[in-house]
Design a binder for these strands. Structure first.
Lengths: 342, 342
DNA sequence: TTGAAAGCGTTACCAT
DNA sequence: ATGGTAACGCTTTCAA
């Protein structure tokens, strides 16, 4: 079929008019440039006929904008990130943007490399879940005035736009809930990392503990142990070593998944022997028997704010950009797993 | 900081040499073009110093390849597609390709629009989970010699590269398994759609039924009912109307999720009263009590083959491309949910 | 051993 | 009311 792609030049030649005229018509400037109705119609008809589509590449090169946003997360296959990906996709396409994704695995080196691949001005903006080691790179992005929104975590000493949730207060509230259900010895299971969201959750937990006469036990699963089987094993050991535990708070859902496996292995009854709660609600928690109490992040809102924060940078001059900083509330879904017997 | 981006021209000027020379050195052709060691070193040092990165955009325009692959699936937030996304990402980046994703929602019109957005030669290849209505568009992609790999489903009367799994035989095998566990009345729950993979699964189910003295009950959830709550309701009605059912085969995992909720609502015991099996294994199935027997698609292999099929088209001349057609085997994970009492 | 220049497909300024 | 043309940043052929 169509061997050679039609270009604006071909159209101009075929119709015996100039490239400029075609371009104007294509860009809806026919009126403005006072090109005759008649010619406009003719050109439009021809464009339709040959099915011409302008080259994004050439447009990007010329205009200096690629209409591409990079969505750089820890792991795109993680349900949380995948859901956000789905939600921002809609909004992005609606605004003429496409999304390139990539996963960092929380690996600084890999993340740095990826950012450097993209900063090659082939990309208009970055949405990133940063790791602490990314600070210099993020800073350089900022220096280059590249639109940037951090999410899930942020960098307290960098002036960036971000969308995060109230990790600390939600963790505190959830811990209070466990305490109110009669827990006296609560285990907090988190990852051994200094990502801001994890630190905040841990602090919220500690705050609640400090305000009560509950005992706290903390397990930080080393990120080196990040093979599923190993996580489960670590948790199982932790549970076995602390038989007095009557409550368990997982800092994120994939830890909870492994934890549930461990609990099942140990034949502990939820919630009778162990009350369980997790950060990051998941479809699964609702289906599990008993339902797992969880803190739900407002996905839709996060996605909304993410794109809003991005778009409001994309349009404007670097000088008069507004860096939206959003902190969103979560909601606690109380299900069977955390209820004390009454 | 760096206000103006450095271009190859800036480098040439700064060093008082020509653009060509810089370009040659950048592209590792210094040797080949016999540019002096000395100059090469100098240029490389300077490039390092100013942190120059070539513009992908300009390169793409010049070379006619964007090094971008579109990954167009039904729904990127679906765990299956998200997992594949994660796996092909690795291979793509390793080969210098980036991935733009988009979700079709199985909506022909939306999918068509998306494809047309991309065919604008800003993209080097397409990986697509097609819907039947996409045939003309896919055909036109083929006509334009755009590298294309279908997956999850295929289009029997189109000569394309694809990666699919053995839906029919796996469904047959799974059904046989249910029968061997004593099921006499098996319900098959699928979506009302003519996607090839769903048809194949259904046929596999029927084949097994036909070879036995088992009775089959089929529920096709209308895609119009695709709100989660509605799916669950449809399934619940189906179960209530067919109390004789002693086995249930879900054609895909999200149906199973809703089905499990329905079963829980009806207080049916798995597997004592109802043996359950699902297509598309999921992390969740292993954790659920009892474990849900499921057919697992070989994700890694699918991703491997997907990129292999893509890359082997990307490199070659349209005329001498090989269209890889891959059909991969699944594996049945037997868990508690399908075991007959003995 | 190096350089000039054409060209990829656009847009937009400046002419006419 | 239209058209010529430079420029976006790069690769590559041809010349020197």
């Amino acid at each position: 079929m169509a061997k050679k792609k039609t270009s604006i030049k071909d159209i101009a030649e075929a119709l015996g008019i100039s490239i400029t005229t075609v371009s104007f018509i294509l860009n809806g400037k026919a009126r403005e440039k006072r090109i005759s109705e008649e010619l406009t119609k003719k050109v439009e008809a021809y464009i339709d006929e040959v099915g011409y589509k302008p080259s994004h590449l050439a447009q990007s090169l010329r205009l200096g904008k690629s209409k591409v946003i990079v969505f750089m997360v820890e792991d795109i296959s993680n349900q949380f990130f995948a859901s956000i990906a789905r939600l921002i996709e809609e909004k992005a396409y609606k605004n003429g943007y496409k999304i390139i994704y990539c996963s960092t695995d929380n690996d600084d080196e890999k993340a740095n490399e990826l950012i450097n691949t993209f900063r090659t001005r082939s990309v208009d903006g970055f949405i990133i879940t940063p790791t602490p080691g990314l600070k210099p790179t993020i800073k350089s992005l900022l220096d280059e005035d590249l639109p940037l929104v951090l999410f899930d975590r942020w960098m307290p000493d960098l002036d960036t736009s971000y969308v995060i949730v109230e990790n600390r207060s939600s963790a505190r509230e959830a811990t209070h809930h466990l305490i109110s259900q009669g827990c006296k010895n609560i285990g907090f299971i988190t990852v051994d990392s200094d990502q801001s969201q994890m630190i905040d959750r841990m602090e919220g937990f500690q705050e609640a503990i400090d305000q009560s006469d509950t005992k706290a036990f903390v397990l930080k699963v080393p990120s080196s142990a990040f093979v599923k089987a190993l996580i489960a094993q670590k948790i199982q050991e932790f549970l076995a070593q602390n038989p007095q535990l009557d409550g368990l708070f997982f800092a994120t859902n994939y830890l909870a998944f492994e934890g549930l496996a461990a609990i099942t292995n140990l034949k502990k009854k939820i919630p009778q022997e162990l009350r369980v709660i997790s950060f990051d609600d998941h479809y699964f928690f609702n289906l599990y028997q008993p339902g797992i109490t969880a803190i739900e992040q407002p996905l839709e809102l996060i996605a909304d704010k993410l794109m809003e924060s991005m778009l409001c940078q994309l349009d404007k001059e670097p000088s008069k950009r507004v860096l939206l900083k959003t902190v969103l509330p979560n909601s606690l879904h109380v299900r069977g797993s955390s209820l004390g017997e009454e």
